[in-house]
Amino acid sequence: MVETPTAAEGLAILRTMWRIRLFEEAVEDLYGRGMMHGTMHLSIGEEAVPTGACLALKDGDQITSTHRGHGHCIAKGADLGRSMAELLAKDNGYCRGRGGSMHIADVATGNLGANGIVGGGLPIAAGAGLSNKLRGVDNVCLCFHGDGSVGEGAWHEALTLASMWDLPVVFVCENNQYGMSMPSKKAFKVENISDKAAGFGIPGETVDGNDVLAVREAVQRAVDRARRGEGPSFIEALTYRWRGALEVGQEPLPHQGRDPGLARPRPHRAMGRRDARHRACHP
């Protein structure tokens, strides 16, 4: 039974989700107008996962993020101005224009950074968890990763170490159903990716990643467990990316058209083939 938030909580949740959505739309707009360069991976449609997950965190907790990481940063509390400045390659950006979209970090507040390498953040999250344990603090590291990273050796090695050492890490797998063009249903012969958690002897759970309260509840349970010193958990959040990753020839997906609660009357661009704008936002 998902706990109903108070009106104030609900407002805060909605505000975070809208901040992510509007930030991403602004990026898309600036990119489309040629005012932003590089590579941008938008998380439009996935806002509920970082928003719900980060609600379970407290000061000193860490996150590791992915190449599709703007939402994680914002949900963890990143300043929108410094984030946008980074994407615009400005010296007052989070990384002084050295990192860009795939490397935004705010290490002082526990955002250990986005990552340009699929799976790159997983062992780092295990290390942050180990550090928390060795330093004797009750902080937890939330490791956002995509379904695409589940095929990486880094995924298996990080889960192996985290489970062996009972590290305070919560692995949040954003299953947006495609690793670039590879359907996760085709890639992994399990009903749910979370079934793989059993192989590490840790709790695994699949939640509706477009239901922000369901995400919050599952992650809170896992974070509490980690804080008690009982070790890592794995949460698969089913979601869908609306922009910037659909590749040639994909069939429409069951999740297409669903929205984590931010739908508004705006004509949806035809998707299914790369167009110039789309291609610009994803290699």
């Binding site: 860490q62 590791t64 290490v107 250990l112 790159g120 997983l122 062992p123 780092i124 999250a125 295990a126 290390g127 942050a128 968890g129 180990l130 550090s131 928390n132 060795l134 330093r135 590291c141 050796g153 880094a154 090695e157 990080a158 192996t160 170490l161 062996m164």
Partner: peptide, 28 residues
Amino acid sequence: TDRIRDTTISELGIMGAGVGAALTGMRP
């Protein structure tokens, strides 16, 4: 055994754990 820490045979995982620990205040 906390400070002389045996790992599984997982070089990528160990190295990443070193990176994460180093980023968060340790000297691995």
